[in-house]
Amino acid sequence: MTEGVWLWVAFALMAMTTVGTRGSFILLGEKGRLPPALQRALRYAPAAALSALVMPDLLLDGGEFTPLNPKFAAGLVVLAVALRWRNPWLPFILGMGVLLVMRKGLGW
């Protein structure tokens, strides 16, 4: 766990990425322009980044590759629910529900 002053330093660094990215061209004004190839490549960064955070949590259990685990099962439910219904609460309710039933109810 990052703690104390270092935590606030981390927040400040993250805040710099917020204003830095959002402000990049707004603050530069007419002076700057992004090379088209770079602009196209950057489009893939968010999807790649989100997935790079999600998949290890779903597929690993204690650092080991374990595709059959409660989190993965709950993840599949979340995918199905989010693809099927537009209700923004449902993936959280059913995803957590499945995880808790498997962990607490079935002791997995």
Binding site: T21, G23, I26, A45
Partner: peptide, 13 residues
């Protein structure tokens, strides 16, 4: 954080 914010560079432009 930067990677997750990168889409804003495109919006900003």
């Amino acid at each position: 954080a930067l990677a997750l914010n990168l889409r804003f560079v495109i919006f900003s432009a």
